[in-house]
Structure formats: structure tokens, C-alpha cells
């Protein structure tokens, strides 16, 4: 996975980078399956390896398929900031409970409730679904609104379809319409 990430960064050919990012997502999905998070793995495979690769390719068809910028020499200040931020983040994780620790707060409060009672309270066999759609309904509503906002943003930025981007066709239509009016 790390090798794929480095290859994505080093690659100057964007087509190869897109393919590698698909592979990266697929490896991540395998990891999620290994951690028995099947729902997350499913999403990762469908979104990361599937549709985002496709959208990247659609973008590549509009732009160039390789970057022209040569490698710049390493600049010390940004490197220092990145290293320090990374070190602080890693230091922050030291306070977190160990993976699978039965004494961790989420494992003592909400998870037993979900596992023991969602079957009778919600009656849905897949606990992930009952947590997502019922216990955490507000969060999922917010998530849906985020996706909606992203779609609206793209529509606003890039126009609503092909007709707006055809200046030639549009002006021709405008020329036609007065002509038709004159005939009538």
C-alpha cells in the first residue's frame, strides 16, 4: 500500500497515477475486510476503486495526461512543517486506547447497547445499517446533504450540461430565432 502511494506521488504519467490510486483503494478495501468492516470495504471498493477512477479518467480526457513540471529541489520549511505536524498527530494517537481494548470508552458505553439491543429495538439484523440509519440518523442526513452540496457545487461551477459550453451553437440559435420571427 505504501509502495503504491509512493508510486502515485512519483508518477508523471497521470493515467498511471489514476490506475494506481484505484489499486490503492482496492488494497484499502482488502484491509477493511480483514478488519471485518465489510460495509466500509464495500464502499471503498465501489467509490474509491470504481467511480472515482472513472471520474478521474473523464477529467483526464479533458486535460493533459501527463504533468510537465519537473521535480523541484526539496524545500526545507514545508518539509519541516509536514514532519512536525505528522509527529504531533502520531503523538496524539498515543493517548488512544489500544486496538480492541475492552476497557476503551466506546466499547463500554455505546457498543454493548448497539450489539445487545438493536435486534429488539430496531429489528434489523445488520447492526451497521441500524446504527447508520437509525441511531445516527442525523449524521447520515448530514452526509447526504454533503453529497448533494457537492453535486450542486459542480453543477454551478461547470455549467448544467453541454449546451452552455457551445458558444457557436448558442449564437447560431439566437441568430435563427429573430429570423424565424421575421418570417412569421
Amino acid at each position: 500500500m505504501a509502495a503504491t502511494a509512493i508510486a502515485i506521488v512519483r508518477s508523471r504519467k497521470l493515467f498511471a497515477a489514476v490506475m494506481l490510486s484505484g489499486i490503492f483503494s482496492l488494497i484499502a478495501a482488502v484491509f477493511y475486510v480483514h478488519l471485518t468492516a465489510v460495509d466500509v470495504a464495500f464502499t471503498e471498493a465501489a467509490v474509491g476503486a470504481g467511480i472515482s477512477t472513472l471520474l478521474f479518467l473523464a477529467t483526464l480526457a479533458l486535460t493533459h495526461t501527463s504533468t510537465e513540471e519537473p521535480h523541484k529541489p526539496v524545500r526545507p520549511l514545508p518539509l519541516l512543517i509536514v514532519v512536525v505536524t505528522g509527529a504531533v498527530l502520531i503523538y496524539g494517537t498515543l493517548d488512544m486506547p489500544a486496538y480492541g481494548d475492552p476497557e476503551a470508552p466506546p466499547n463500554t458505553h455505546v457498543i454493548p447497547r448497539y450489539i445487545n439491543e438493536s435486534g429488539t429495538e430496531v429489528g434489523v439484523p445488520n447492526i451497521v445499517t441500524s446504527v447508520l440509519a437509525s441511531y445516527r440518523g442525523y449524521d447520515t442526513l448530514g452526509e447526504t446533504v454533503v453529497i448533494f452540496t457537492a453535486g450542486i457545487g459542480v453543477l454551478v461551477l461547470l455549467g448544467r450540461g453541454r449546451r452552455r459550453w457551445r458558444p457557436g451553437l448558442k449564437s447560431k440559435n439566437e441568430d435563427d430565432e429573430p429570423g424565424r420571427g421575421a418570417e412569421a
Partner: peptide, 13 residues
């Protein structure tokens, strides 16, 4: 919608 927008762009070039 994203696909439509992206695929509608290429006419411009």
C-alpha cells in the same frame, strides 16, 4: 450529474 457535466465539457475544445 458529475458524469454528465464532465462528458459535456469536451465539446468546448
Amino acid at each position: 450529474a458529475l458524469f454528465y457535466v464532465f462528458s459535456g465539457q469536451d465539446v468546448r475544445r
